[in-house]
Amino acid sequence: MTFSADSVSLELGENTVLSSVSLKFSPGLVHVVVGPNGAGKSSLLKLFSGDCAPSSGNIKLDLQSLCDHDQSTTAQRIAVLPQQSQLNFPFSVYEVVALGRYPHNTGKIKDDEVVAAVLSAVGGLHLQDRLYTSLSGGEQQRIHLARVLAQVWLPSPQGSRYLLLDEPTAALDLAHQHLILKLAVDMAKQGLGVLSVLHDLNLAAQYADVITLLSEGRVVAQGVPSQVLSVENIQSVYGVNVEIIPHPSQSRFLIISE
């Protein structure tokens, strides 16, 4: 029961976006992908979400190639949060979140329960009756997270559930950044596999079980945060000198740029 990339490469025209990247992401863990702009993080997520097929290599879901799975059943257990949404029609917040229930035929009563649960999980229950178009950017992003959560909130008979997040914290304030990542950890505890692209290395260090550091389409390092986010790795990939110090009160570390 895994969701993995087996030495996948992706070529778009002349450009090699990803070259033989392998990544296994398992139910119950939060897997974070970090790397500089243009490293291929979003492209990797696109491969996992089935938006594009790898030029070589294979994306495998439960030992079977992702393209061989039926789209409507994978939608019952794989949910994808995009970086930005194009939605500009005046749906109510409730209606947007309820879109996440489309892959399931659980009926309106069950769907309403799920919508209420996910909205309170992202701290957006009070927004339920507002028009989506009247919300701030951060609120909209949280509503989309709620929609995506609604899609995989309940266990699926199809197998393990997976959550793919493309920079989920980008538009959020400090409190909501932590709220969302805590939520990702909670979901992983319930047995979901979570794959998230993040830019903030400290957030990644704090919430990830496994980190993959990408640079120029290749995996530079993969493993637990303390191994991957070393001074040397960060220096070589980002070209920034950092210091790594222990957190004053918690058993984790902080990355400080010089």
Binding site: S49, A75, V80, Q151
Partner: peptide
């Protein structure tokens, strides 16, 4: 209305 990829992710 969410976008084409989003609609695909919803199983369409």
């Amino acid at each position: 209305l969410l976008g084409e990829s989003e609609a695909r992710h919803l199983g369409f």
